[in-house]
Nucleic acid binder design. Sequence first.
DNA 1: CTGAAAGCGCTAACAC
DNA 2: GTGTTAGCGCTTTCAG
Lengths: 361, 361
Amino acid sequence: MIRKAAAIATTPAPPNGATLMNVAKAASVSLATASRVFSNPELVRQDTAERVLRAAGELGFRPNLLGAKLRAQRTRIIGVMLPTMENAVFAECWRGIEEAALAQGYSLMLVTSRYDPQRERERIEYLLRHRVDGMVLTVADAARSAVLDQLDAERVPYVLAYNQGPRSGKRYSVSVDNRASARAGVETLIAAGHRRICVVSGAFAASDRARQRHAGYRDAMRAHGLEPLPPLSLPAHTPTQTPAEVERIRQFVTAPSAPTALFCTNDMLAIGVISVLKRLGLSVPGDMSVLGYDGIELGQLLERPLSTVVQPNNEIGARALACLLAQLDSGNAGAGPDQGLTRATLLPHALRAGATVAPPA
Amino acid sequence: MIRKAAAIATTPAPPNGATLMNVAKAASVSLATASRVFSNPELVRQDTAERVLRAAGELGFRPNLLGAKLRAQRTRIIGVMLPTMENAVFAECWRGIEEAALAQGYSLMLVTSRYDPQRERERIEYLLRHRVDGMVLTVADAARSAVLDQLDAERVPYVLAYNQGPRSGKRYSVSVDNRASARAGVETLIAAGHRRICVVSGAFAASDRARQRHAGYRDAMRAHGLEPLPPLSLPAHTPTQTPAEVERIRQFVTAPSAPTALFCTNDMLAIGVISVLKRLGLSVPGDMSVLGYDGIELGQLLERPLSTVVQPNNEIGARALACLLAQLDSGNAGAGPDQGLTRATLLPHALRAGATVAPPA
DNA sequence: CTGAAAGCGCTAACAC
DNA sequence: GTGTTAGCGCTTTCAG
């Protein structure tokens, strides 16, 4: 008895007396019945349910998902890791993920990695401690990612977004065909009459997509008998208009045999580059054509709409989540046998003709 | 015995045998000691701790935060509700929040409301069920928000971001002085020689900031003996360049006594408006000056850098979180007495001269 | 259709 | 310093 009293006293002063247990008491039913009213209503008689519901309403009952999750050993929380929200492409993807999650009754926990593998590890560990049921991830480099290997080893379900898995790999991924779409984009440049075309990218090491898109560029060039030119590799994937960066761009575009068209591996970069060119006294597309990649909405809102390779960003997010939930529903336990199906979902890309590409002068 | 066996069998097949309990066994210590090694290491002897740590390492132990949270009655999760991530201003704010949270060991749960009060209610209820310790919120209209009233009633700690609380209100908020900063912005327009200045905004009903900024506009106009003009109120806070919207803008800017300068209540809107003007054959700032509000980074990266009123977005997020944690640490229980301090933190704004404002023709 | 009871993994008194 | 123990709030057999 004393023990009991002590135990009660130590209880952190019920911040919320509205527990299921109290609801049950108020409705004169057992805890089990009260629980069922919320999780399996069909198992309880109409009027009993109503009584419980009324009691819940009066007490202002709000289910504590923590208890439920702990017991159920599944949280219905999905971890999402994206490089940054400040690049609209990921904000658009997030929207797709969030809508899909909402529709399916899942919650999300978002972390950003800033394209930093070290930080990727830490943030994912964090998600793991929260016992997320699975994750939607965009990593710097899927092919050599220690953290992905770890996730595989621990059998944590995840789906890559934007990172494109190999055609017959074991990893799930949702993306466009980076290489083919980049090639298609560059081909529009070639079709416009450009011969000297260069890639502008953030650090290739920090983005497998950038590398794949670069490969697509090479495909296009070679297919048309053109010599791939060395790329302009900038430090970041989002533009910083530091003097150093501006100077690098200046040197690049004013060299003796400067390119007549630039293929930027993402739209933000393209936007930044266009502005730098302008500042350098070059007109776009008069003196230099610029093609982006991503298809962010913003591109269409600009004074000079951005010509770009469009990815269905919302859909990439939504499909990635759907793919993850499908995994969760099915062979969650014990990883179903490989059905020989490709696990890399490729969504169609499109080309958006803006006003930043024209025939060379 | 039978019971016991049954109970074990029903356990959802340990997806993770690496529990604290098992670590404790492996290290031949009690559960309590093992727990202390992680939460209060100073309470346990060096070598004991090492043994536990080693065992944990071998078993691949990862603390299950769910159990800890349930027991501790605090989750160390902060709920964040922002209107949308697709407006960079909120993406920048998120960054500030995330960095601050990371530094303090808090996790975040992000939801977006799309400027929709109904959705605000639902999403917040969601956060509440997850037992977040507190929230950082940007709501459509803080002054008449049912959900905020509810949060007050339930004594859920929260801090508003962007929504500006009244000088001596009871609510915590972190923002700039919307009215004063807007006034300062419009005054730069007046200083440039403009007399006919109009506000362009998304639906005022859906944003108290838009209304406050509009009030600042009126202040500026009146202070300079100018007649406030009727605003152009667009349906959304982010631009959609639908034919209908373009047409509305056209009528507005080609009317007999059309304005010579436009003050847009946010940067995204300004960017969209500039592009529409261009399409309508008007040059900015030649035929029309445009001033934005928000100071998103993107504004500086544009071909024609956006003139705008700058808010410290990262800092708004970081400070809002800090303010929330301060609340949590102190009078979490029982809402400390009103210290007469203003709970509305006002951060300094700035004016950024871009290239979209010039003297009227 | 309803109830009793056994925990999910962890923390925090309290006792030793 | 360390162990014992009683739950946090909920779900889910198993038994009526």
